[in-house]
Computed example of a mutant assay.
Amino acid sequence: MILQVEGVDAYCYTGGKAFDASLPSAVFIHGAQNDHSVWALQTRYFAHHGFNVLAVDLPGHGRSKGAAKASVEALSQWLLALLDAAGVARALLVGHSMGSLIALQTAHAAPARVSHLALLGSTYPMKVADSLLEAARSDEPSAIDMVNIWSHSSVAQKPSFPGPGFYAMGGARRLKQRISQINPQQVFYTDFAACNSYANGEAAAASVRCPTLFIFGLRDMMTPARSTKLLTSAIAHGKVVQVDSGHELMAEQPDAVLDALFAFARTPSATT
């Protein structure tokens, strides 16, 4: 589905079902140098089991036009404008990595718009090493390879995981390369810099009152468990689910992630 947001095209995958604003809505927000396709399994299931789905391509990513936004706050404002364009008054927000910061900031900026908040592969502060920032700016192919290696647990490197013909690590690398091909404006650096500079996470987390779910990868080297305590302490009512994966948990453990998300989404307050 193509929407006009801030004067340019914004693409949302709807899970293979026509969008129906009368249904409860779930909005899926990808991370750095990715697009809506990272949510392929989860979004299609949601769309065929009673939910509207908007799996967004952030500006400058995938099929969405315009330049990549330089801050989490700007991305949150864009997301709220997208909800307005779609006619969605209130939604479950599901964000991965950079997308989790966007979801968190949106819950803080417009709490009435967020019914539930699901944060995957999240941490705060989401600092990026200076060496990786510089690689993203000056040698993007190397930065893609580094992040791709660090984002996966060893089991994901098996070509048969999680099923015949599915290569999680290769698919993730190719997606990041494609984002570079379709938008040469240093999207990876812009995304990383936005994560690195976001300074409102603690205040945003302290303001969250809606039901919250954290899903963490037990072998995540990008946002390791030891780094998540500020968020989980600030949102003390949040439920924590751990899956046996690295940072790319939606691909490495798609069923476990889906089960946790869908059970969370179906709680009574998520659909009222």
Score class of each variant (00 low, 15 high):
residue 1 M to Q: 05
residue 4 Q to S: 15
residue 9 D to W: 07
residue 9 D to H: 10
residue 13 Y to K: 10
residue 14 T to P: 04
residue 17 K to T: 14
residue 21 A to E: 07
residue 21 A to W: 00
residue 23 L to V: 06
residue 24 P to D: 04
residue 25 S to K: 07
residue 28 F to T: 03
residue 30 H to G: 04
residue 33 Q to I: 02
residue 33 Q to G: 12
residue 33 Q to K: 06
residue 36 H to E: 04
residue 38 V to C: 14
residue 39 W to S: 05
residue 39 W to D: 10
residue 42 Q to F: 02
residue 43 T to I: 14
residue 48 H to D: 11
residue 49 H to T: 12
residue 49 H to D: 13
residue 50 G to D: 08
residue 52 N to E: 08
residue 54 L to S: 08
residue 54 L to C: 10
residue 57 D to H: 02
residue 59 P to S: 06
residue 62 G to I: 02
residue 63 R to C: 08
residue 65 K to D: 14
residue 68 A to Y: 00
residue 75 L to W: 00
residue 75 L to V: 03
residue 76 S to A: 14
residue 83 L to Y: 02
residue 88 V to W: 01
residue 88 V to Q: 00
residue 89 A to I: 01
residue 91 A to D: 03
residue 91 A to C: 09
residue 92 L to K: 02
residue 92 L to S: 08
residue 92 L to M: 11
residue 94 V to R: 01
residue 94 V to Q: 02
residue 95 G to Q: 13
residue 97 S to H: 01
residue 99 G to K: 05
residue 102 I to V: 12
residue 102 I to Q: 08
residue 109 A to T: 14
residue 110 A to T: 09
residue 119 L to G: 04
residue 120 L to I: 11
residue 123 T to C: 05
residue 123 T to Q: 08
residue 124 Y to G: 00
residue 124 Y to D: 00
residue 125 P to F: 01
residue 126 M to H: 12
residue 127 K to R: 14
residue 131 S to Y: 13
residue 133 L to C: 01
residue 136 A to P: 09
residue 140 E to N: 07
residue 142 S to F: 09
residue 144 I to M: 12
residue 146 M to Q: 13
residue 147 V to R: 05
residue 148 N to F: 04
residue 152 H to D: 01
residue 158 K to S: 07
residue 159 P to N: 06
residue 166 F to T: 12
residue 167 Y to C: 05
residue 173 R to S: 12
residue 174 R to Q: 14
residue 174 R to C: 04
residue 175 L to I: 12
residue 176 K to G: 06
residue 176 K to I: 01
residue 177 Q to N: 10
residue 178 R to N: 08
residue 182 I to S: 15
residue 184 P to D: 13
residue 185 Q to A: 15
residue 185 Q to M: 15
residue 188 F to R: 07
residue 190 T to G: 09
residue 190 T to Y: 03
residue 201 G to A: 08
residue 202 E to Q: 15
residue 204 A to C: 07
residue 206 A to L: 15
residue 207 S to A: 15
residue 209 R to I: 03
residue 210 C to R: 03
residue 217 G to P: 02
residue 217 G to A: 03
residue 224 P to G: 03
residue 226 R to Q: 08
residue 227 S to I: 06
residue 227 S to Q: 12
residue 228 T to W: 02
residue 240 V to C: 14
residue 244 D to Q: 13
residue 245 S to F: 01
residue 246 G to F: 00
residue 247 H to F: 01
residue 247 H to I: 02
residue 251 A to P: 01
residue 256 A to Q: 10
residue 257 V to C: 15
residue 259 D to W: 06
residue 260 A to G: 14
residue 260 A to L: 13
residue 263 A to R: 15
residue 264 F to C: 09
